[in-house]
Every structure is written in structure tokens, then in C-alpha cells.
């Protein structure tokens, strides 16, 4: 039997076919309903050991108790502070260096071989020496977070700055701009949206290093709480910590997205 023309393109999965807002909302909620449903079911049916995998409602109760009765908020604040301080220091160094590398090949050929080499060294491998240098205070944790993102951030910003179109630079030069004006008034504003996007990506990575730092060498912070909980088989607290880290990551990501829209209104109009 011959099928009608075009029938091969019917069905749910069509390449690049647009999806209605309703379908995408239902899908987004649905996947989480399924996730928690399977989790609850596994507990009810006794498929998993409740000591290792506590049911979701218990994790949520524990999350409430942690904040209400056990002063977990101060751990969360310490963690947030570590991320923000280390990340701000990394940005303060990376933005000027990255833009300078992207603008001036003479600077790029000096710094690029150095920065690229460091990028391949996993930051956690510095933990033992950082502990010896900085002791057990805040310094080694901040240093780890800083080292973890700084080289990626510099490279990303330098690459984005190199992508600023030649015609924009030549326009500035033929309007009478010198080197300084060309970099600060044309290249920098042109690359700024990409810099903020790079920051957004690297902030997520800072959270990864935070957990490593707090698990390995800290008595405070979300990661340290989770390691304490492990000693007493409090899996519900560990899972609650994971949820908090995930939620914080999401909040910061959304904040950066909002900042991006706020700073660059001209990018919205074309979409």
C-alpha cells in the first residue's frame, strides 16, 4: 500500500518541530513527577535499603529541621560567601587579563603558553600544598576555588575578545580612535555580553570546587555538614545538602541570566 505523501514526517518526533508552551510545561513538571514517583515507589516496595536511600518526604522534613533547628543557614551562608569572594577575585584578575590577551597579540604570546599549561592541571591536586601553605582557615578554600576557575575564565574571555569583528575595530580606527579608546570603548562593550555568559558558566564550576574544598578540608559549610552526616549514616541530611547546593546553583544561574538581560537590553530586541 502506498502511503500518502508526507506521511513519513508525521508523529511526535519531527526534526526541529516547534513545541507549544503547554507541552513544554507539562514535560518539565512530568519528568520530576516521574523521578519522585519512582523514588517513593522504590521505598514503599522495599527495593532499596532505607538507611542508604531515605524516602523523599523524609529528606524534605530533614531539610526543614536542618534550617529550623540545627543552624544550617550559617553553613549555607559560609559556602555562598566562599563562592562569591573567590569568584569575584577570579573575575577581577581574569577580565583585564583576558581582554588584554584578546586585544594585543603581543600580550597573548606571553600569557597564552602559561595560562594554557595551568588549565590542564586539576585544581584539586593542589589541595595538599595549599593546606601546607595556608593552614586550615578560609585561605586554602578560597585559593582552591580561585585556581579552579581562573585559567578557564581567562582563556574564555581572551577567545571571545579575539572574536570581536575586525570591521568594528577598523571602524573605530578610521573614526580617529587610538589604542586605548579602541579597546575600552569598542572591543570591551562588544565582548561584554560574552564575558557575562562566560562568568555564568564558570560560576557553576566554582560550586563544584566549593564542594570539593569543603569535603576535603573544612569543618564549616554545606560540604562539611554532608561529611559529618556521613559519619552518622544520616543519608537524609546528605541528600538535603545536595538539594540545597542544586537550588543555590539554580538561583545563581537565574540571577546571572537576569543580570544579562538587564545589562544588555539591546540583545533582546533582535530575538
Amino acid at each position: 500500500m502506498a502511503s500518502p505523501p508526507g506521511s513519513r514526517n508525521a508523529g511526535v518526533l519531527r526534526v526541529r518541530a516547534p513545541v507549544s508552551p503547554r507541552q513544554s510545561a507539562i514535560s518539565a513538571v512530568g519528568i520530576w513527577v516521574v523521578f519522585f514517583g519512582v523514588w517513593t515507589l522504590a521505598n514503599r516496595m522495599g527495593w532499596v535499603n532505607p538507611i542508604l536511600v531515605p524516602p523523599p518526604d523524609q529528606v524534605l522534613k530533614t531539610l526543614y529541621t536542618l534550617f529550623a533547628e540545627q543552624g544550617f543557614a550559617s553553613d549555607v551562608l559560609i559556602s555562598v560567601e566562599r563562592v562569591l569572594v573567590a569568584f569575584a577575585m577570579a573575575c577581577l584578575v581574569a577580565v583585564p587579563l583576558g581582554v588584554a590577551m584578546g586585544a594585543f597579540p603581543a600580550i597573548d604570546v606571553v600569557l597564552s603558553p602559561f595560562v594554557s599549561a595551568w588549565r590542564y592541571l586539576p585544581a584539586p591536586s593542589f589541595i595538599p600544598i595549599l593546606l601546607m601553605w595556608f593552614g586550615t582557615g578560609e585561605a586554602p578554600k578560597l585559593a582552591l576555588l580561585f585556581l579552579g576557575v581562573i585559567f578557564f575564565l581567562i582563556t574564555l574571555i581572551a577567545d571571545h575578545t579575539k572574536e570581536v569583528r575586525k570591521e568594528l575595530i577598523e571602524t573605530a580606527l578610521t573614526l580617529g580612535a587610538g589604542q586605548r579608546v579602541t579597546v575600552l570603548r569598542v572591543m570591551l562593550p562588544a565582548v561584554l555580553p560574552s564575558i557575562v555568559t562566560a562568568m555564568r558558566q564558570m560560576l557553576a564550576m566554582t560550586w563544584t570546587y566549593l564542594v570539593i574544598a569543603e569535603i576535603v578540608a573544612s569543618t564549616t559549610g554545606i560540604g562539611a555538614m554532608m561529611m559529618r552526616a556521613r559519619r552518622f549514616l544520616h543519608t537524609d541530611e546528605i541528600l538535603a545538602g545536595i538539594i540545597v547546593i542544586g537550588a543555590l546553583g539554580l538561583v545563581f544561574d537565574m540571577a546571572f541570566a537576569a543580570l544579562h538581560r538587564r545589562l544588555f537590553p539591546y540583545l533582546q530586541e533582535s530575538r
Binding site: E167, E170, T171
Partner: peptide
């Protein structure tokens, strides 16, 4: 130099500035 202004085939508007500020740019610097 500013005595020889150039217009390119590729678009060179400074996207972060409104039209008026784009036109002011050369005079400003």
C-alpha cells in the same frame, strides 16, 4: 585617522549604542 572615514560592506553599528549615540561616537572620542 579621522580625516579618512570608512564605511564597510559588513555591518559595523555599535550594537550597545542607540542610533544617535552611534552617530555621535566619532565626535565624542
Amino acid at each position: 585617522g579621522r580625516d579618512r572615514g570608512m564605511v564597510f560592506q559588513a555591518y559595523t553599528s555599535f550594537d550597545w549604542l542607540p542610533v544617535g549615540k552611534n552617530v555621535e561616537f566619532g565626535m565624542k572620542i
